[in-house]
Design a protein around this nucleic acid. Structure first.
Lengths: 140, 140
DNA sequence: TTTGAAAATTGGCCTAA
DNA sequence: TTAGGCCAATTTTCAAA
């Protein structure tokens, strides 16, 4: 991870499909240099993968909720692992702050979010409190 | 946005660099069909862009904090817009829940996070409270 | 949807630091 | 040993019919 690697990552963060040839041109280096650095970062795990950024409302997911979970200390890890298994739960973090477990849940509407939280996730043993915060707008 | 578009998005969410030819093969359709659908989704804004998923600690960012901000109602929008201008602030949302503004801030260590919050962001007019929650581990 | 040309990727092999 | 350069084969992209 040197300055050049960082610059390559900057380009890929902005446009993950940008061809290596173009990155090379902008960095005034060769395509093979860029390619070999990217491959190395992939192998080292600096680059975990590539993805597409979607507009959730346009995909039909009108309700995206950052949802915190409180648990008993002894259930903490199992709850986090169970949460990962739900398709609707797109991200799972452990975190300091108000809630030890933070998630991001996608739902078509409020009704569906409510069903996911109460009927599906709610069945996980050990959850003491659920705190959903609906994202209104992503500015950045 | 039909079933086929959704399947294409599923593939691209998992691997944003997956060639259209491969997606076409798995969906048993033609490459041009896939490409035209993707282009349409890009134009419609369903696809907002592509990105690389990085391992922040391996990049040298050892402290990633989901940070909430409280403001006076009249300063809410200007604070959110100012936050967007900081390079260290990678994401900005408006949200229901405990804090109207939620951000994600990347820092090399706790010292840097503290500097960002107090010396840089702290200067924004209208912020009443800052609530950083450091991400410990991303499970999904 | 098919087709063909242009561009990008991939792998191997080489040199230099 | 490691990063980068070069070349050739393959694959992917892209626009026109």
């Amino acid at each position: 991870m040197d300055e050049k690697d960082m610059k390559i990552l900057d380009f890929l963060i902005t446009d993950g499909r940008k061809p290596f040839t173009e990155i090379a041109k902008e960095l005034k280096t060769s395509e093979s240099s860029v390619r070999k650095r990217v491959k190395k970062m992939e192998e080292e795990g600096v680059i975990k993968g590539y993805s597409v950024m979607v507009d959730t409302p346009k995909m039909g997911y009108n309700v995206v909720a950052q949802t915190g979970f409180d648990t008993n200390p002894e259930d903490f890890l199992s709850v986090a692992q169970e949460l990962c298994k739900f398709e609707e739960v797109k991200k799972v973090f452990t975190s300091t702050g108000d809630h030890m477990i933070m998630t991001e849940i996608w739902a078509k509407d409020g009704k569906e979010l409510s069903e996911i939280i109460f009927n599906k996730i709610g069945k996980i043993k050990g959850i003491k409190k659920v705190c959903p915060a609906i994202i209104l707008e992503q500015l950045k």
